[in-house]
Structures are given as C-alpha cells and as structure tokens.
Computed example of a mutant assay.
Amino acid sequence: MPLTIGLTGGIGSGKSTASQWFEQQRIAVVDADIVAREVVQQGQPALQEIEQAFGAWVLEKDGTLNRKALRNHIFQNKEARQVLENITHPKIRESIIHQLQMIQSPYGILVSPLLFEAQQDQLTQRTLLIDCSEATQISRASQRDQQSIEQIKMIIATQMPRTEKQKRATDIVLNDTSQELLFSQLRALHLKYLALSEVTE
C-alpha cells in the first residue's frame, strides 16, 4: 500500500476544497463520507442491521435510509450514536482499507471528518489538518449548507475539539484567509509527500 495521508478538518474548514486540489494533482482520494453512504445503501447488510436496531422509521417509503431522521435522532441520543457507529464503522473501515490498497498514485489521501474520532488515522502514515477558527467554520458552513448557526454549533460540539486535532496532526494548514494561500500551502506539502513516497517505496 502506498504512503497514505489522512486529511481532516471540522465542518467549514475547507477539507473538501483541499481534497479536490489533491485530486487535480492526480493523487487518489478515498472519501470516508462517500464510503459511509455506500455501506448503508439498499441491499447492504448495514441497512438491515440499522432497521433492526432502530425500527422501520429509519427507512423512507422507497426503502432507502432516512438520513435526516436518523441524524436528528443520534444528535439527541449518545447511546443511539454508539449503536449506529458499532454497526457502520467496521464496514466503513473494511471498505476504506480495500480502496487504499487499490491506489495507483505516488501517495493517497484518506479524507475524513472523523479521522481521529473513528481511529481511521491508524490506516495512515501521516495526518493533515485543515484548520480554521470556529467563527470561520460557522460563517462558511451557514453560507454553504443553509443550516442555522445553532445546528452548525451542535455539529462542531460533537466533533473532536480543534486543539486536540492540532495535537494529533502531523501537518497543519491554516485556512482562515484566501483559497490562494490554502493552495500555496498544499503545493509545498504535495512536494513533501512526493519525496516521502519515494523513500517509502
């Protein structure tokens, strides 16, 4: 498996913009959010297990997962969140490992908002935190997602504190200002990762 960089950041930090930049450099990106959606699609074992654990109300009329209802439920119930994670996290991890093993680029990126919380950083050799202030997170996320400030603050509260992520990350990029500055920092790291990938081959 090639050198793998775990990329993370809180809501509104710019991690999606960063992962897209790496894709434009022809670096393979495995997105944990996409994997998380794939494992609960119709016909997947996880969807049946979720229905058994929570009840038929978690399904839409067409049999797909009612994401909004389930998300609201686990936000208000820590035990329910744990039940859901016990069902989905092992399956997500298995799929991520498989996709990382298929990477053909010099190094790979695993982008995940829960990189540290779900111990997915164990699947990587280095971690990159896209970091910004909470005020910037709230401003960006409210403009992008049409969510209320209260909802965004709730999401931030459920994620690992910014200071803890800073302690754990191998590399940190500050993304409080312009996209141009973000990309210049990513360019320097890209060259660094290319050099490291040659060493690890």
Rank of each mutant, 00 (worst) to 15 (best):
residue 35 V to A: 02
residue 23 E to W: 08
residue 101 Q to V: 06
residue 179 Q to T: 14
residue 74 I to M: 10
residue 135 A to T: 13
residue 79 E to S: 11
residue 85 E to W: 01
residue 147 Q to F: 11
residue 85 E to H: 05
residue 107 Y to S: 02
residue 171 D to G: 07
residue 79 E to L: 10
residue 82 Q to F: 10
residue 44 Q to T: 12
residue 51 E to G: 06
residue 188 A to Q: 15
residue 95 S to R: 12
residue 61 K to G: 12
residue 53 A to C: 10
residue 65 L to W: 06
residue 127 T to S: 07
residue 171 D to K: 07
residue 111 V to N: 02
residue 188 A to G: 14
residue 12 G to A: 05
residue 190 H to F: 13
residue 12 G to P: 01
residue 146 Q to S: 14
residue 74 I to R: 05
residue 148 S to Y: 11
residue 30 V to L: 11
residue 74 I to F: 07
residue 110 L to C: 04
residue 35 V to P: 02
residue 135 A to G: 11
residue 159 Q to E: 05
residue 121 D to T: 08
residue 112 S to A: 15
residue 104 Q to F: 10
residue 115 L to I: 06
residue 1 M to L: 13
residue 91 K to F: 05
residue 196 L to R: 01
residue 96 I to D: 00
residue 198 E to Q: 15
residue 60 E to K: 14
residue 201 E to F: 15
residue 118 A to E: 05
residue 19 S to C: 11
residue 100 L to Y: 00
residue 163 T to G: 08
residue 92 I to P: 00
residue 147 Q to T: 09
residue 35 V to R: 00
residue 190 H to A: 10
residue 81 R to Y: 09
residue 48 Q to D: 13
residue 106 P to N: 09
residue 112 S to E: 04
residue 125 Q to S: 10
residue 80 A to C: 07
residue 114 L to S: 02
residue 20 Q to R: 15
residue 17 T to Y: 08
residue 44 Q to K: 15
residue 129 L to E: 01
residue 114 L to H: 04
residue 92 I to N: 00
residue 113 P to T: 03
residue 31 D to L: 05
residue 40 V to R: 01
residue 16 S to F: 03
residue 111 V to W: 00
residue 166 Q to I: 08
residue 185 Q to W: 07
residue 199 V to I: 14
residue 193 Y to Q: 04
residue 70 L to N: 05
residue 73 H to L: 13
residue 161 P to V: 00
residue 44 Q to C: 12
residue 94 E to P: 10
residue 14 G to Q: 03
residue 180 E to Y: 13
residue 4 T to W: 09
residue 179 Q to R: 15
residue 92 I to A: 00
residue 134 E to T: 07
residue 146 Q to R: 12
residue 36 A to Y: 03
residue 47 L to D: 00
residue 146 Q to G: 13
residue 21 W to G: 04
residue 148 S to I: 10
residue 134 E to G: 01
residue 95 S to V: 11
residue 65 L to S: 04
residue 108 G to A: 10
residue 111 V to I: 11
residue 105 S to T: 13
residue 178 S to N: 04
residue 83 V to L: 07
residue 124 T to M: 06
residue 182 L to T: 03
residue 65 L to E: 04
residue 157 A to Y: 05
residue 13 S to H: 01
residue 193 Y to V: 01
residue 102 M to E: 15
residue 164 E to R: 07
residue 31 D to N: 14
residue 149 I to D: 08
residue 167 K to N: 08
residue 140 R to I: 06
residue 35 V to Q: 00
residue 167 K to Q: 11
residue 86 N to A: 15
residue 187 R to I: 13
residue 153 K to S: 06
residue 93 R to G: 07
residue 173 V to P: 00
residue 22 F to H: 06
residue 165 K to D: 03
residue 29 V to C: 07
residue 133 S to Q: 09
residue 40 V to W: 00
residue 127 T to K: 02
residue 127 T to W: 01
residue 127 T to D: 04
residue 131 D to E: 08
residue 181 L to V: 14
residue 8 T to F: 04
residue 135 A to S: 14
residue 138 I to T: 01
residue 150 E to W: 08
